[in-house]
Nucleic acid binder design. Structure first.
Lengths: 213, 213, 213, 213
DNA sequence: GATGAATGAGCGTTCATTCAT
DNA sequence: CATGAATGAACGCTCATTCAT
């Protein structure tokens, strides 16, 4: 697991840090979703968190720290929910379940996902690196599932195709968060069903050969 | 076709406006790519365009106009290239060609695409509306192609699936621009081939063989 | 009494607001007097007030607010001094005293008056309305005094003449502030004495008949 | 007569200079009246004058020159109209006629007067000096008339009172331009009649004694 | 630990003025 | 002479960050 970046705080009481940061993240997500990271001021974050600007800076060092904290907390929640999956079986069925879980997750945390993908690019090199690694961990999860399905013969993909396919699955999830404006007459269930069909069929077999593409 | 928003200029010479705006867009794309819209200053844009801040403002009214101009010019180029496609045939083969064109386009204009999708959300209501409409026009193109393939029996999709599938195709293109950092050992050709396979198989059902696409 | 416009401040401590605004007004009057509202920069105002530009904007929202504050504070002081007058008697003597007070006031606050009358026209509609109402309140004071003198028979003026006369008295006061450059060998006392004579005689009676005016 | 300041022009053709400056002054007065000198841009002046910004600068050197030209042209017109008065007689009747002329003049040129008095303070030292001298010339006209009336015994004023009285007369005229917003139910004729009565009575005699002023 | 007043670098934008055409 | 595109100093204003209380 990628090591978390430490965000410095001048406060010693660790449990207070956790509490204040939760308040801060909660307020910030709402604001970032509404107006983006850059259009949100630190004062607004402090206010939304329920304390003063001075207090805000007792728990972070720069505004960017807030963004990092937000992204990180979203990943934590994503991980928490994905970890519940029993991925050991490794059948197509598991993959389907994983997709269902993943898409449901995105549906539940739509705002957070938008914030994370939209704004995380504003992070500095090192924080960005951490976030990107987290993304890779998520695609790696799909990779492992796909590998197993290939191993059992349920899917037939080359190693390179596996990697790309995992991104493919990942990205289709993002779509539910990002293109909701264009998909408002779909339910999640419909979305999941259709996507699962497309994706699995797409990876299932040799039935199509495209030459010279 | 969605009507363009007019960006006011205090300069009268129309051809000069075109020329200066091209310089401006070119410089801005590079900067926006590198540091995002918000972190880029108008002075930097002017400098990158090769003229003074005063001159910049002879051709736009607000910084946001630059972003709009960037997004709009990207769409224009996308349209120009996509229009070359003869979409009338409406076979799976055409669809494959369209995807190939689309993905190649994204490969050529990677920076522009990233900027457009990443930063266009910073546009005000009306400009954003215009940009989103343009996106819908692009997915509509895929819709039409898919419809034809369904009509010929080459694909079997419900109407609702067609709409979703068009977004699906669209989004997979964005992936090539956005996740390049994770796909650096793939060539475009590989990417196109694999994606085409996934996508078409996904939509085909169990049935089809495509020769010579 | 006309209701004050609230000038927003992001500072909460009310007494600090009062103190800082006093500093600000004091500095601004000097600058506005010297170079006018438009030629004075906000940085100069801040510096003259003894704090930074950032602090200035903690206590106002726009540069115009400073001008409004200046005008308003002048009216407050004018009112404070005029209120000391016991206007209830309503004899010619009271009128004379009022004029003396008023002209002395203008002499004491010459710079402020010049700024107010010269620059207040730069205020936006609503602020300007407030200032003009204040001016009317001042002429109304003269009106009331004149009415009483008419009632006692000390002066003979028609109702319409009363209104005009009150402006007449008011404007002669402004003259002492505005035309000082041409009146530098007059003392205030001389000025008051002469003006009082002109004005009261002017309103006193029927002694002159002008033919063919 | 005070010598005019020369405004430099890079154009040689004297009659063209006159013509262009007339256009310029005409446009500028309207604009200055509407939004003041500082809020009017040189581009707007050029446009209102009917030519380009470049041409504007062929006939002046700075924006302030336009203001000077405007003020100067107003004085010229004032002088032209006042010169028609036969001031040689020197009776009270002449004074009354002069006031009538002066107030009518102000009524006719209300906008110009407001601009001149309101904005002329934005002129630099030397231009301002010229304008102030012009004002003194106007009060000097009243002085001479008053002197004659004193000589004939029609009025009784000390020399110092004469000077002040001339300003008094002058300022009451300004009032008609500046306080029109408060005098909208007076006609010029009413105004002139009342003012003349006030002013002449005020200067006429000894009939009132004020104790304790 | 919490507060919020103070700071000033830096931003977007304007506009008087110039000068090549 | 006329034009209008180009310039950049300077403006009003914001906001991340600090630090005395």
């Amino acid at each position: 697991m990628t090591k978390k970046r430490e965000i410095q705080s001048s406060v010693k009481d660790e449990s207070l840090i956790v509490k204040r940061r939760e308040q801060m993240i909660h307020g910030a997500v709402t604001l970032f979703k509404e107006k983006g990271f850059h259009r949100t001021t630190t004062r607004e974050i402090a206010k939304a968190a329920g304390f003063s600007i001075g207090t805000l800076y007792e728990y972070i060092r720069t505004k960017e720290d807030v963004l990092y904290l937000v992204c990180d907390s979203i990943y934590d929640e994503v991980n928490a929910r994905l970890d519940r999956l029993d991925l050991e079986e490794g059948s197509l069925e598991t993959l389907v379940k994983a997709l269902e879980q993943y898409y449901t997750l995105i549906d539940d945390m739509q705002d957070e996902f938008v914030v994370m993908y939209q704004e995380s690019k504003s992070l500095q090199k090192d924080a960005l690196g951490y976030v990107l690694k987290k993304e890779l961990e998520m695609t790696a999860l799909f990779e492992r599932l796909l590998e197993k399905c290939v191993a059992t013969g349920e899917l037939s993909l080359t190693p390179k195709e596996i990697v790309l396919a995992s991104h493919h699955l990942f990205v289709q999830g993002q779509m539910w968060a990002f293109r909701r404006w264009a998909l408002d007459d779909y339910t999640v269930e419909e979305f999941i069903e259709m996507q699962t069909k497309f994706l699995l069929q797409g990876m299932a077999g040799e039935k199509i050969t495209i030459q010279g593409a």
